[in-house]
Nucleic acid binder design. Structure first.
Lengths: 164, 164
DNA sequence: CTTGACTCTGTAGTCGGCTACAGGGTTTAG
DNA sequence: CTAAACCCTGTAGCCGACTACAGAGTCAAG
């Protein structure tokens, strides 16, 4: 579902304007400018009139960013990785440590998720087996002294006090 | 590591003040009040002087909330579940739908994470095998036209333009 | 009675990763 | 030439789940 667009196609190998980069990466124009502010994209060249003029390489860089993000790196970490790399030697020493840590985190997260998946699945199985009433999930909160979570607390005045 | 505390211990079965609930659940006092504002805890009884006086049951309710949260339910969803339950019949119909959806989400998330774990592990293995220089991870961003992600863009004036 | 830990309310700030304007200038099809 | 579609900067807002603080009242030990 594309809205009305300018028909001019950028020549292969030509510089890209921000909208084109957005279209090709699936990111929004705003997100791209945001990345630039965050130091993830460096400063692209500019046209005479001040428009950003991206090299095709930015597409790979953005793909890299997306992959790193999906793996679980934050934008700050990705910036760090990119900066390290830009600084040259040693090539990726720091990054490897970061990656190892991230792998451990990923494993931990997976462990936790599997655990909860199991719990949730069991819960659902229970419900399906023994009728829907009086399931444990709900029983857990059965004997509460609390009133329902409706009605917001009635702005209690500091003077008019209620007995316990 | 506990800071200086009042020495008085609440009797078993007695009502709890917010700080005690916080201590026993590991939540902060502020978080508890926040939950109350969000409708997750209802309105607890109050002492003469307006202090919240929680029944022990709140501990189970909070444990339930934590479990639900860990499974991946948002506070809004948990509120919904709790409200449903409070409303009585039908016991957990809506909740079961919610749970089924959440299970599917969990599976999807797991699938994605496993995928990226695999990628990240492979990356690390590659690095370990063939020396640390010129790894693909870094090669990905090798041929960029962009300057490093350091130095913020120099506030460009609308008049003083730069040639491409 | 004093002191200090505790509690109250209300409001504002944080973080990450964006999104949404407002108020301009530029480019290009027709 | 005009109008639409693009681009610019800067600032503000959103979401979720809290956290922090100000300014005031309360409670218990010494």
């Amino acid at each position: 579902m594309r809205t009305a667009q300018r028909t001019t196609q950028p020549a292969r190998g030509a510089l890209l304007r921000i909208g084109e980069v957005a279209a090709r990466t699936g990111l929004s124009v705003e997100a791209l400018r945001f990345y630039e502010r965050r130091g993830l994209l460096g400063r692209p060249a500019r046209t005479e009139s001040g428009y950003r003029a991206y090299d095709q390489a930015v597409l790979e860089r953005l793909a890299f960013i997306k992959r790193a993000q999906a793996i679980g790196f934050s934008l700050a970490e990705i910036t760090e990785i990119l900066t390290m790399r830009a600084a040259g030697q040693p090539p990726c020493h720091h990054v490897r440590g970061l990656a190892r840590r991230k792998l451990a985190e990923l494993d931990e997260r997976l462990r936790a998720l599997r655990h909860y998946r199991k719990e949730l699945a069991e819960l659902l199985r229970d419900w399906d087996e023994r009728g829907s009433s009086a399931g444990e999930f709900c029983g857990l909160i059965e004997h509460s002294n609390l009133h329902g979570p409706d009605e917001p607390p009635p702005h209690r005045t500091r003077k008019g006090r209620q007995k316990l």
